[in-house]
Amino acid sequence: IINNLKLIREKKKISQSELAALLEVSRQTINGIEKNKYNPSLQLALKIAYYLNTPLEDIFQW
């Protein structure tokens, strides 16, 4: 999986903590996703895309 979450999140000036709060997950979860240590569920990936107002395929590429 190619993961552009960190790049997109930083472009939008959103911290890991802010995104985690919006998604109701821990900051460690966001960190793990960004470091490719954790693959989000489809539901979480869709929520990330929604809150970042970015197409899912721009954030994650399988």
Rank of each mutant, 00 (worst) to 15 (best):
3 N>T: 06
33 I>W: 09
44 L>F: 08
43 Q>R: 13
55 P>N: 07
36 N>K: 11
16 Q>T: 07
34 E>M: 03
56 L>H: 03
41 S>A: 05
41 S>H: 06
15 S>C: 04
48 I>V: 05
38 Y>I: 14
38 Y>W: 13
40 P>H: 04
4 N>V: 04
25 V>N: 02
33 I>P: 01
2 I>L: 14
57 E>S: 12
27 R>T: 15
19 L>S: 00
4 N>E: 04
40 P>A: 06
16 Q>H: 04
42 L>C: 14
13 K>L: 10
10 E>L: 13
1 I>C: 15
49 A>K: 01
33 I>C: 03
36 N>V: 04
15 S>F: 04
15 S>D: 06
61 Q>A: 09
29 T>H: 10
32 G>Y: 15
41 S>G: 09
12 K>V: 09
45 A>W: 09
5 L>G: 01
19 L>V: 02
7 L>D: 13
10 E>S: 08
60 F>Q: 00
20 A>W: 03
28 Q>N: 11
49 A>S: 11
24 E>A: 14
29 T>S: 08
13 K>V: 06
15 S>A: 08
17 S>K: 13
21 A>P: 01
29 T>K: 08
31 N>Q: 12
23 L>A: 12
55 P>W: 04
17 S>L: 11
3 N>H: 04
53 N>M: 08
11 K>L: 11
8 I>K: 03
32 G>W: 14
35 K>L: 14
28 Q>A: 13
26 S>P: 15
18 E>R: 12
35 K>R: 13
55 P>G: 06
4 N>L: 05
41 S>T: 11
20 A>F: 01
56 L>M: 12
45 A>N: 01
30 I>K: 00
16 Q>M: 09
53 N>Y: 05
1 I>Q: 09
31 N>G: 08
55 P>T: 08
56 L>I: 13
39 N>W: 15
22 L>C: 11
57 E>Y: 10
54 T>F: 05
12 K>G: 04
44 L>K: 02
60 F>W: 11
46 L>D: 04
14 I>D: 00
52 L>V: 03
8 I>P: 01
15 S>Q: 06
39 N>Q: 15
19 L>H: 02
28 Q>C: 11
14 I>K: 05
56 L>K: 02
29 T>P: 02
29 T>D: 06
33 I>V: 06
60 F>N: 00
16 Q>W: 03
18 E>P: 03
59 I>C: 02
50 Y>K: 10
42 L>S: 05
49 A>N: 01
18 E>T: 12
12 K>C: 10
29 T>R: 10
42 L>V: 08
56 L>S: 03
51 Y>H: 09
33 I>N: 00
24 E>D: 13
19 L>Q: 00
12 K>W: 04
11 K>I: 11
30 I>T: 01
50 Y>T: 07
36 N>E: 07
54 T>V: 13
22 L>G: 13
51 Y>Q: 07
28 Q>W: 10
35 K>H: 13
24 E>M: 12
